[in-house]
Simulated assay, not measured.
Amino acid sequence: MVRHMSERADDLQRAGQQLSSLVDAATVVGLGTSTRAAHELFGLVEHTTRALIRRGFRVVAVLDNQRVGELYDEFVRGADIDLDGVLGQAWGPWRTTEMRAALGWLRRHNQRRTDPVRVIAVGGSRVLPADYHRAVELLARLDAPTARRVGELFDVIRTAHDSGEHVQRAHGTHPGTPFVDLARTARDLVLALDGGPDRDEVLLMLDAIVEHHANAIGVGHDVAREERSAADRLVAHQRRTGERIVLWEGSAHVAAHRGVMLGAHLRAALADRYAAVHLTFGRGRIPGMDLPEPSPNSLEGALLAGGAGGVRIVDLRSPAATEVAPLLGRPARTRVVSGVYDPGQDERHYLDLPSPRDSFDVVAVVPTISAVRPLSAATERDVPGRRNE
């Protein structure tokens, strides 16, 4: 089944409703985007999620820091939370006005309901940007020179919460020394101080900070372990609560074909109760760059061939239009625009799929995208996001 509609805001809403109708029998729906930096793709995620909530889904899951997820959840359930402060602690791609608006909608929705929608985060790390500030504050009580030196090291490595080390290397902004080595240097400086409660608290934070940077992509990141752990957390939550879940992530993570990624584990655990949705695009702009037309031999290129305008939705489990049916059961490529994407080398940024049908249940293609709107600044707090404490 193939459908078309334009990408105006009201048509994105209708597309979300149609997408939800195709996957609402699932227990977990993975909404994967080929880039996290496109306003229209996030809009499709949000509108599809709203429609699924109306159909009984009660949890939104994100692959982010679990402590941030706890604060998201408090906010959407009505707590007195400074949302911009919370988003300042989030993984960089979530720090957008679109994310803020989506969480605001969930909060308003919950105010009218007795069965609130919850938010969970299933990422592995529990280190926040605010932890670095807290550690330096405690050190300042003990030894000002050590606090200054540790603060200088933190000023470098804390940037990984905005843009990962692998992204910094790709863009030529990485200082060279692995951040885990700088974190270990900071820990050694603190170990040289006299013992006491403040020093012990700082060392606990530094142990977590060292572990966080030791797991960085390109350093010691174990993608198989991290993806399986995230899937295990999500499935455990679903089995414990019985609630149906919408997962917001990148398409490479939600893809259901066999492998090490999150979606593969969800398909193995849930079978057809897991639905994988791929939201992708043709061309457009994201913050800082223009994106060219997709490769003609890509999934996007094939689905957009012929020039029909509007969002194209393909249910891969049903008979498809004649011109795309031969593509869906054979190996294919789809574009993935991550933080290391280079528009001048577009051909290098395609994910190989065993076949679209093996990887996804539904695909939606937006012909043209525009950039998300990043929040102007991140706010760091000792206890991020909470007011009046």
Results as ranks from 00 to 15, higher is better:
A38E: 10
V311D: 04
L87P: 06
T173I: 07
G282H: 07
A214D: 14
T97P: 00
R100C: 06
L106M: 14
L103I: 00
E165L: 05
A216R: 11
R108W: 08
V76Y: 05
R373Q: 14
R317Y: 00
V76S: 05
R225M: 10
S229R: 14
T146M: 03
L316Y: 02
M5I: 03
G250V: 11
A37E: 14
L351D: 12
R267S: 10
R240W: 06
Q111H: 13
T185V: 08
R100A: 14
R118F: 00
M5D: 08
A214G: 11
A321P: 04
T35D: 11
A276M: 09
A183V: 08
T368N: 05
T97F: 04
A147D: 09
R67P: 00
A140Y: 06
A378V: 02
V254E: 12
R244Y: 05
G329W: 03
P367W: 07
V340Q: 13
N215W: 07
D80R: 15
G123T: 06
R283A: 15
A269Y: 08
R317K: 07
L63T: 08
S34D: 12
H161Q: 12
T368F: 02
D80L: 11
L375K: 03
P175N: 02
D84H: 05
L262N: 07
R233V: 02
D200N: 10
A320G: 05
A230V: 09
V210Y: 05
E323D: 15
T368G: 01
A224L: 08
A252M: 12
A256V: 01
L262A: 02
V383S: 09
P129I: 04
R335K: 12
R148P: 03
A332R: 12
E98K: 09
P287W: 06
A37R: 15
S229F: 09
T177C: 04
G69E: 09
E293A: 15
G43S: 14
R67S: 09
T97L: 09
H257T: 04
L182Q: 12
R158M: 10
S20D: 10
I286S: 01
F57L: 04
R14D: 11
Y341P: 09
T177R: 15
D358F: 01
E211W: 08
A268F: 00
H237E: 15
V383F: 11
E389A: 15
A9C: 00
D82F: 06
S370K: 01
R134I: 06
P367S: 06
F281V: 05
Q345D: 13
S376G: 12
G329C: 01
E323S: 13
P374S: 02
G69L: 06
P93C: 11
N110Y: 08
V62E: 11
R77G: 04
E323C: 02
H278W: 10
A25N: 13
